[in-house]
Write a protein that binds this DNA or RNA. Structure first.
Length: 409
DNA sequence: AACCCTA
């Protein structure tokens, strides 16, 4: 069984249908909901650099839930999520004959920053929906319990997710371990527009979350006018170096019960709308433990983020170690390493290899997680993020270097 | 810009 994912582009927010029970929740009114982050980050809204032009809203996706409560009594949950992320979250009215509802997420986006309030909000809403499912006592117990999320995308934007011959989508599948597909038109929920496509993401909670971030990141990138790099200064001044790579999560892990303060800038210069649809499927397993601590690890060090620069061929490498927190956050053991390698665009072919074969080998041999990011607008280089145990990372890194040096494409 | 992926 796999999930279907489709995207569509539409200028108007797609409508989602969600089942009846959306509004009932178990959380008592004023009780803080655990999924909800500790609150807005005070003071961060002050000095927002507003250099980029404000663009029209980007519709991206909507979230549908099967019977889980995401809204909260009196909208408390949604409200808290909005406060926290700075994005606005709209839950569409139920549509007859459709058990899903469309949730539209909108926020100003700053192309200069890799932090995206919209993506952040999508992830939080997704997390919340999963939690709600657990609260409802859904059978999440079994380990491989699949979870799914759907993202409604205007048809004209599907290309950026598929890529030529479907390379991008398969790349995302490989990188995240989630099933990602575009669902057949017949299966598109009634609440989505005819002009939209639905991207379905399925798999384990963490994989789906990761894939969601990838997908929304690509959609977001697609909104910004992509200036082709001619070396000439389309690059913004260096004072605004993105803190994270485009498809890496830059969100507050507190939604998962952790609270680390990461200095996430809220720079909203652009309006983005993400709509996402989430099915009423499974649960993450082992939810009483933070799901995949590794994925959050780099955020744990977010405030530090050492950027050690060294030579790798013609590229630059920045290394940062990640921590894996023990239960309760008491112990901290270094078990995971993340390396970012900046690779010039002209050797990227060697990195991918024919049909991505080099990349596949790289992953197989090293066992590391390898993600190749799209170039930033105007940049002629790309970031390759490698993570895994120190050994895996090391292996992947030298293998990558070998591919580049031998020009195996 | 990508365009049809997966089963």
């Amino acid at each position: 069984m796999y999930w279907l994912l489709r995207k569509r582009f539409s200028l108007s927010p797609a409508a989602f249908k969600i089942a009846h029970q959306l509004i009932d929740e178990k959380t008592s009114g004023s009780q803080p909901i655990k999924a909800i982050p500790q609150g807005p980050l005070p003071g961060l809204h002050r000095d927002l650099p507003q250099r980029s032009s404000i663009l029209p809203p980007m519709p991206s996706g909507s979230v549908t839930y099967g019977r889980w409560c995401v809204i909260g009594r009196g909208g408390t949950i949604v409200k808290a999520l909005q406060d926290e992320t700075g994005a606005s979250i709209n839950v569409a009215a139920p549509v007859a004959g459709c058990d899903e509802r469309l949730i539209t997420i909108t926020a100003m986006e700053n192309p200069e920053s890799r932090y995206s309030p919209t993506q952040n909000a999508v992830i939080l809403v997704f997390n919340r929906s999963i939690e709600a499912g657990i609260e409802k006592g859904l059978d999440l117990g079994s380990k491989g319990s699949p979870v799914s999320a759907r993202v409604v995308v205007p048809s004209n934007q599907v290309g950026c997710l598929l890529g030529k011959g479907g390379i991008i989508i398969s790349e995302m599948r490989n990188a995240t371990g989630a099933g990602i597909s575009i669902i057949a038109h017949e299966q598109v929920p009634k609440c989505a527009s005819e002009l939209d496509e639905v991207v379905q993401i399925t798999g384990e909670f963490v994989c789906v979350q990761d894939a969601l971030y990838n997908v929304t990141g690509r959609l977001r990138d697609n909104l910004f006018p992509s200036r082709i790099s001619n070396g000439a200064g389309t690059r913004s001044s260096s004072s605004l170096i993105p803190e994270t790579t485009p498809y890496e999560r830059a969100i507050d892990p507190s939604s998962l019960g952790w609270h680390t303060s990461v200095g996430v800038p809220h720079n909203f210069n652009r309006h983005t709308t993400l709509t996402q649809s989430i099915d009423h499927h499974g649960l993450p397993y082992g939810y009483d433990h933070p799901p995949s601590p590794k994925l959050w690890a780099s955020q744990t060090l977010g405030g530090v983020n050492p950027r050690n620069v060294m030579d790798v061929g013609r590229g630059l490498t920045s290394v940062k170690s990640s921590l894996e927190l023990g239960s309760g956050g008491r112990s901290a053991i270094v078990t995971n390493t993340t390396v970012e390698i900046v690779v010039p665009e002209n050797v990227i072919g060697s990195v991918y290899g024919e049909n991505g074969s080099n990349l596949t080998r790289l992953r197989q041999i090293s066992g590391a997680k390898v993600v190749v990011h799209e170039p930033l607008p105007g940049a002629n280089e790309r970031t390759v993020v490698i993570s895994g145990t120190p050994d895996e990372t090391q292996a992947a890194q030298s293998l990558l270097q070998a591919f580049i040096l031998t020009g195996t494409s």
